[in-house]
Design a protein around this nucleic acid. Structure first.
Lengths: 151, 151
DNA sequence: TATTGTTATACTCTATAACTATA
DNA sequence: TATAGTTATAGAGTATAACAATA
């Protein structure tokens, strides 16, 4: 790099006015998490959303797709594609709901339970990476502030 | 919903153990921002990433694609697709760099400057929505904590 | 050799619209 | 009428791999 260019671009990570935009920092932080998550889960071949759905359905066996979508803040159609993928891989099954014929009841298969176990191990690793830069008090603050955005 | 089902699913937004995962809150907060941003920018038909690139190139005229990618934490190929789209819409142009033949120098067109002006207005609206739930001190804290994740 | 841009390719998330079945 | 699931479709971001041009 020439001296003129170096003067023009003082630091490699200088983002100028964008630095004052809150939404921009949320986006960058999310991107960093996304990339680390993808690396951590490369062997399991699971995405953040897929793990969230597996975890949630394991917590609430028999829940409907619309419920999954509501809790994870996804559209019906978006939920559909994710459940389809998990079902195609043998991790989840659909059953007609006994109480409401419009709904499908979702359950993990034994294979789904196994992969969720591995996923939770990987999540612990991923969370440790994320938490390493904060004190517990800072983590509590961060989660409380983030919750105000998505609630 | 039956009483049994209501007991099974106490709250529509109960996400169980997932609530303790930091990465999950980042994802949800990002999703909420993403959706509000998309609504706010529906008329302009610009995405978060597109606005970021326009803004950054306006701040640093003549910067290269690799620089854009580094600062916004994107892959070379990812940067490529976004710049292609902005160029196809007439908002940005490429010039061969005078100092390094491998690089392209990026500039906004007059149309790009105009749309960026409108985008900055929309950003103010979006940021106001985001900031409305925080005090200034909380905002400072939030941005500082988020920066520790993406730096 | 390393860097930058480019092209081709692929996958996931996201959503809208329209249709079917059920409440 | 409203809700839930389904299908089709499309756009955007993300990345890897391979290649060309340049440093």
């Amino acid at each position: 790099m020439t001296e003129a260019a170096a003067a023009e671009l003082p630091q490699d990570d200088d983002i100028g006015e964008l630095n004052a935009i809150v939404g921009f920092h949320i986006r960058l932080a999310h991107g960093a998490c996304y990339r680390h998550f993808t690396e951590t889960f490369a062997d399991l071949e699971l995405t953040q959303k897929q793990v969230s759905v597996l975890w949630l359905v394991d917590d609430h066996p028999g829940m409907s797709q619309i419920d999954v979508g509501t809790r994870l803040q996804m559209d019906r159609a978006t939920t559909m594609t994710i459940v389809n993928r998990l079902q195609a891989r043998g991790y989840m099954r659909r059953e007609k709901s006994a109480t409401d014929g419009r709904k499908q009841a979702l359950f993990l298969t034994p294979e789904g339970l196994t992969i969720l176990g591995h996923a939770k191990d990987a999540i612990r690793e991923h969370e440790a990476w994320l938490k390493s830069r904060f004190t517990q008090k800072e983590l509590d603050t961060l989660m409380e502030l983030l919750a105000r955005i998505h609630d």
